[in-house]
Design a protein around this nucleic acid. Structure first.
Length: 210
DNA sequence: TGCCAGGCCGGGT
DNA sequence: ACCCGGCATGGC
């Protein structure tokens, strides 16, 4: 499995090149995007984030002051806007109460206990927590998403019903424990998934993995 | 034009 | 411990 996962990475990197993730201007913006992109097309998330940017609300203080209804209207293009507005607010409350609204302070905490705390925030599940840890805070954790599972199961590397933790452990046990590698690998899997491994195209003949 | 997108929660078995 | 409906916009 180790050699399979490493050669898979090499092939993806050779084919697509570096992905330069996460597409955002700041760690704070990464976190906003991680919550907004839950089960949602990234293009719609960008619209929502641009609305926040134009409203100068991409900071803790501005976002905290934004009324819930106003926030919901700004992020409307991202879908599930009422729930996501609450989730953003809940995260801000968590950040304020646990880390004095300071991301640097949050990033000083060890990865595992921090992950547990993030998971205790309503609206933050395993993928969102790991995205925050890896892409906003540069912590060593592997992000698993629908594409990751679909790609691996279609290539017979995991069972279709493998759990999040099983898939994550598969990568983390077999890869060199390296933030840059985890960052690039997940981004490459998403890139491959978007272009060649859609749910609606179960038999893709063009997959560069063959 | 229906299906899908970088999930997660809560209630029911 | 699983299973499933709900949440919602915009692109193709």
């Amino acid at each position: 499995m180790r050699s399979i996962l490493n050669s898979l990475y090499q092939r993806l990197y050779s084919h697509f090149g570096p992905q330069d993730w996460w597409p955002a201007d700041s760690p704070f913006e990464v976190i906003i995007g991680a919550i907004l992109t839950q089960n949602t097309n990234w293009l719609n998330v960008e619209r929502a984030i641009n609305n926040l940017r134009e409203n100068k609300s991409l900071s803790f203080s501005r976002l905290s002051k934004l009324p819930l209804k106003k926030l919901a209207s700004l992020i409307r293009p991202a879908g599930y806007y009422n729930i996501k507005a609450k989730r953003l607010k809940d995260f801000l409350i968590f950040l304020s109460q646990s880390y004095r609204a300071n991301l640097k302070k949050m990033s000083k905490e060890a990865t595992y206990p921090l992950r547990e705390k993030l998971l205790s925030v309503k609206g933050i599940g395993p993928e969102t927590a790991d995205s925050i840890l890896l892409y906003a805070l540069n912590k060593k954790t592997f992000v698993v998403d629908a594409y990751t599972k679909r790609i691996l199961s279609r290539h017979g590397l995991i069972k279709q019903d493998a759990t999040y933790d099983q898939v994550q452990n598969l990568f983390m046990r077999n890869l060199k424990n390296n933030v840059k590698l985890f960052n690039e690998y997940h981004a490459l899997l998403v890139r491959l998934g978007k272009e060649y491994c859609l749910k609606s195209k179960p038999k893709c003949k063009l997959c560069p993995l063959g």
